[in-house]
Amino acid sequence: MGIKAAHYAAALAETRRPAFLEIHAENYLHAGGPAHRYLESLRRDHALSIHGVGLSLGGPSAPAAEDLAARRALLDRYEAHSFSEHLAWSGLPRQYLNDLLPLAYTQESLARVVRHVEATQEALGRRILIENPATYVGFTDSTYSEPDFIGEVVRRSGCGLLLDVNNIVVSAINHEFDAVRYLHELPLQATGEVHLAGHALKTDRAGRPLAIDTHDGPVQDSTWHLFRIALQTTGRVPVLIEWDSQLPEWPALMEQARMAEQAMNDGARETHHAHG
């Protein structure tokens, strides 16, 4: 469950415990005050993972030492069990653009991303997870497919995969590729966590479908379907429902979590039957 300020009270009163809560690192990098106080009380009863959106690991320069130190301090303060970031960039030094931007997949960018991931793992003192992106454009210079590029980052840096199933569905629509084939080309054995979310479906001026990674509604059927396929390889994994805008009431979020649990139970049963 991604935890937002609007849900602090409901989350504190919840008796059916989600397995873990996840926060965006950047929402808690300020020094103190009420947000930290709420997080401290939630942390008493829940495991916590931290998801970064601003380290810009796909960017032109390595994350600054003080930015890594700030995240290390946050991980230590809340004894978080996991840290994840994106295969993306989000601006230039001193100019933060607040979006997850795409990069060309070349030898050169691969070496750079691997260096950035290694520097981050070194500074945080742990293996991190890297999330596959949702993208709207590709690059003619790319010499790796996205899953191959991610596979190489995982292999060379030793990081894990944050499998964002909705991002695959979104990118598959936008770049007209086969989502199931892409899924199987990813290093699924390195999956440490799964993200599920909703997207918006539009058409562009040429009449082609354009999917936008909005996180503003329930998880779509196409994403649940791909998730069930992924589970056949990954087995049971920590799953996060990302619902970041047009927030529903807390019970609607809990229902999404229940559906994810159901998919994992069904998956375990199928595996059991298959083996025996």
């Binding site: 454009v137 003619t140 770049h175």
Partner: peptide
């Protein structure tokens, strides 16, 4: 150096 299936739509995609 950007690409998308069907070049007519590139501006719309970058606009996202």
């Amino acid at each position: 150096g950007l690409c998308a299936p069907g070049h007519a739509t590139l501006a719309d995609r970058f606009a996202v």
